[in-house]
């Protein structure tokens, strides 16, 4: 891990700092603050002050406390949705690459069909039918994102499957388990790891956009996109209340993207040295 950090360029290291600070803040921050995310502790849209560092929201709740709690919600939902996407997309992608044949054809064609839509539009159509409970949001986001994970995994795994060391293992009569864990996964893992970062950002922005449109995480649960919507009117009074939660989301996204970019450059360099 330390070695990895040493390999990264400056901007990726900045990314690591941003992400670590963000995660620490949303995990422990709410416990350290004097206000909870739901208590009304001031008047509407107070500007930043010594008591409310970032001011208050549309009903007088402490904005910082809400951003931290909402940030936690956004992180958790995006993280689980991305895990779901990988849990669906990865095994399918590797299986399709190795088995080929009709299985590959069916899965690839279904994914193509799902990807014939813009993601957000498909999400809206599905949400209109299944509603906006957190489990259905998670499921919808996981399935949506899994299409891209599938395509990538299949492409990378096909490259690996064409290598002669796979043939050598086949000649040895190795088990499927060996193929997966010893031959294929170690070779596709770096690519999948960076993709996880990209998918996570995609999920965080999608869920926030949905919440912003009123179709994502519903009150009373706070989340970053929902807070932007709640405080939208403040903008006409020149207040920054809706911008701050959006900025928090952007900060997280920038942090992750910086890391991903650094990792991609590092992997490209490693390939070059071969």
């Amino acid at each position: 891990m330390i070695n990895l950090l040493r390999d990264l360029n400056l901007s990726a290291r900045i990314g690591v700092v941003i992400v670590v600070v963000f995660l620490l803040a949303v995990t422990f921050g709410p416990m350290l603050l004097p206000y909870s995310a739901v208590e009304i502790s001031g008047s509407v849209w107070e500007p930043p002050s010594a008591t409310h560092w970032l001011g208050t929201d549309n009903v007088g709740r402490d904005l910082l406390a809400r951003i931290l709690t909402g940030g936690r919600m956004t992180v958790l939902v995006s993280f689980f949705a991305t895990c779901g996407a990988f849990a669906i997309g990865c095994p399918l992608g590797i299986a399709a690459a190795i088995t080929g044949g009709w299985f590959d054809l069916i899965v690839t064609r279904s994914v193509d069909a799902l990807m014939a839509f813009p993601g957000l539009i498909l999400a809206l159509i599905v949400l209109s039918a299944i509603g906006t409970s957190i489990p259905s949001l998670l499921m919808m986001m996981a399935v949506l994102s899994s299409t891209i994970v599938f395509r990538l995994t299949r492409a990378v795994a096909s490259d690996v499957a064409a290598m002669e060391y796979i043939e050598v293992a086949r000649l040895r009569g190795e088990t499927m388990r060996w193929f997966l864990f010893k031959e294929v996964l170690p070779n596709v893992a770096p690519t999948l790891f960076t993709e996880f970062g990209l998918r996570f950002v995609f999920a965080a922005i999608l869920i926030s956009s949905l919440s912003f449109l009123g179709l994502g995480i519903q009150p009373p649960y706070p989340d970053l996109g929902g807070m932007v919507k709640e405080n939208a009117l403040a903008i006409t009074f020149g207040r920054s209340a809706p911008i701050l939660p959006a900025l928090a989301l952007a900060l997280l996204a920038i942090g992750v993207n910086l890391i991903v970019d650094g990792l991609l450059k590092r992997n490209a360099n490693l390939d070059l040295h071969k």
């Binding site: 290598m163 002669e164 060391y165 000649l171 170690p186 070779n187």
Partner: peptide, 13 residues
């Protein structure tokens, strides 16, 4: 069997 290109005949990991 031994292959032409040892690079792709050995798992780099």
């Amino acid at each position: 069997m031994i292959y032409q290109l040892p690079d792709v005949a050995m798992n780099p990991r």
